[in-house]
Amino acid sequence: MLYRLADAIPTIWLVLTLVFIAMRILPGDPAIAALGDGALPEQLAEFREKMGLNVPIWQQYFNFLIGTLTLDFGKSYMNGAPVLDLIARNLPYTIQLTVAAMILGTVIGIPFGVLAAVKRGKLPDSGMRIFSLVGYAVPDFYLGALFLIGFALNLRWFPINGAGSGFFDILHHLFLPALTLALVKAAFIGRLTRTSVLEVLGKDYVRTARAKGARENRVIYRHALRNALLPLATGMGLSLLATLSGSVAVELVFNRPGIGRLLIQSITERDYGVIQGGVVVFALMVVFVNLMMDLLYVVIDPRIRVK
């Protein structure tokens, strides 16, 4: 496991470097962005000095790497708040959203996928196909906007922005954005489940289970599904990552706080420190998710358990 962690270090380094380069290639001067067009040359120079932007670029890169190692991403150019604080304040909202979407998507997707596989070629299967096509085709920001207009603005069932406070209020605020992400995810998971279950249902051990006298439900849920979960786990990992990036758009649409919105905002403002910090957090989450997936395999499949 430690070995796997060490494995992730080059990945993170590569991401850091790419972000650093990308930010410097983009046109736009952070000092002008922060102080406005009318700022005096002395003010700009002072700002650059304060933020460490006046040293040669390789030194900026070096400082950035060192800073990342110590989890010090500097201060926001905009409001002077430490980047780490900004991230710490926004991260829980993104995690809430992603986890809720993941749970909702799985709870919707897996049963539908199983149903489609078992009733192959019949009505539930066709329904599933249409649902997943729509799910693939409709972009999440558009779906989010539809939900927002329909359920929040017109029907007033849900709040239109913010994240709420207190358990039930948080859930209330969370539902629409999570559902937006979850439907796209359910389409994907459902499709994947269907394929995987269909394949497993043709296996010899499924026939063995039937030969023992197991009834269909038991055959499907006890014998087939757990084996079908193996390939599914990979897909779910990928899909969780897709949800992370999907959360960027959804946070914007629903005007929710979160890392995604923080990132978008800081990109428009050329707030290098916040962007870099945000991307590092995203990269760490991706690495973390991959690690979790590896662990999940071990739980599901006894064959890869280390003796």
Partner: peptide
């Protein structure tokens, strides 16, 4: 159809050709 599972395994049981693939890999 619903009666067959009662008979399978209790009155009539079967052994298959492929012992490698006939056991569920994720159950003890």
């Amino acid at each position: 159809r619903s009666r067959m599972p009662e008979i399978r395994g209790r009155d009539i049981a079967m052994i298959f050709q492929e012992p490698m693939s006939s056991l569920n890999p994720v159950m003890t």
